[in-house]
Write a protein that binds this DNA or RNA. Sequence first.
RNA 1: GGUCCCGUAGCCAAGUGGCUAAGGCAAUGGACUGCAACUCCGUGAUCACCGGUUCGAAUCCGGUCGGGACCUCCA
Length: 445
Amino acid sequence: MKIFNTLSNQLETFKPIYKNTVNMYVCGPTVYNFIQIGNARPVIFFDVVRRYFEYLNYTVNFVSNFTDVDDKIITKAIEDETTEIEIANKFIEAFYEDVERVGSSTKYLAPRVTEYMSSIIAYIEKLVEKDYAYAIEGDVYFRVSKIEEYGILSGRKLDELNVGSRIEINKKKENPLDFTLWKKTDVGVTFPSPWGEGRPGWHTECIAMIQDIFDGPIDIHGGGADLMFPHHENEIAQNRALHPHYIANYWMHNGHLNIDNKKMSKSEGRYILVKDLDYDYMGFRLFTLSTHYRAPINYTDEVLEANVQEWDKIKRAYTQAFYKLDLAEYLDEEVHEYEHLESIKDRFMYAMDQDFNTPNAITEIQNLVKYTNQKIRQKDALDPLLSALNLFDTFFEILGLKPNVKRMTKETRSIYMEWADARKNKDFDKADRLREALTERGVLS
RNA sequence: GGUCCCGUAGCCAAGUGGCUAAGGCAAUGGACUGCAACUCCGUGAUCACCGGUUCGAAUCCGGUCGGGACCUCCA
């Protein structure tokens, strides 16, 4: 199992801290709006990471937070004349709906900033105690100059950073690079602290949660490529101030999703919410996995449609094999090994082992589709067909693709028999009617 | 201004030093079929350009052109 580690900038063989266990944390959303399709990329990809490790018999402890204290939430609350909690609750619920839509699991630990306020404050206090942070007029800042290796993750050097290129320089800071740990404010919801009423900065929550939940360094820390700098860089800096380790052994970052080759932009109209996506969500999932996770992926309607179509093709092969076996009452027979299927499986797993090369894994699904379609039309091929179906199940489980096929009811089965009879008797009017009925029931397509 | 990534057939996309450059979509020829759909078989590339290193490069180095990202809170 090889993973590209952003920290070392190279492929590394994965070695867990605890045997057969993967402790991983993925930076979650700030819940002030519905998520857009770019936000779905880490939601899908890290779900696949988890599924693959589980397939390899690891126990995966998956944690992903909700940032429910933030300027944007406050702005939104004021706009909607409601409270921050209401906003957060509303969009957390919406987030879970979207996660399910794209086929990812919602069963993981999802801590909220408001639940970890005391841990966050305690963490900041320790930083101040050790002189890695300083309080001034109710604000607390992290002293970046005290961390020699600042920039280790993003590969930047301090003097290369063009400070103030995007935001105004804050004169209260000793160094413009110092980042906010605690912010004094009287707008929106505030929390008491040793430095007065205010709210935490964004960069402490993840490490405070990780420290609390895992009590030490974890295996994998993931998120979007944009989080590399400054967010994850700042996490490492804070953690290094108090601990000798880097919080996580492996840092994984997914590339961005662009629309028509440009960064998503609400103001320019290039912006699609997950809930508004008017396509099959499994096709969308296939689309996001059709490019390697570290590369940028470009969204166009044309490409998504091609993936939706591809998913239909995969599903059709699976469904037809399933019903053929169901009709023959062969679904519960013992599964045997076939050389061709074994080699497809080996190549699939090899692809997954190479830093989650899902495009190549999908190629093996396509090989399996071809094999299955050949066997469907072959006589006396029920046994290899059953093995193929079984392999589909394995692949679907790992990639989180779901064809949603159920065994025929007695009624459906008798319609099927009638249809076959009608065809044999060349009663094509009747056959066409029955074909339609079977199509409606998803048996034919 | 600084840092970095990318450029493979009409489209998507693997491959990152060595057999004839995977796979899918679209297109096209054929087979199958009551019709249609589905499916299967076949057909396509000197890897942006120029130069270099090497016995050998899409893969390494330099340059040119083109696209994109990041530089304090956007996954």
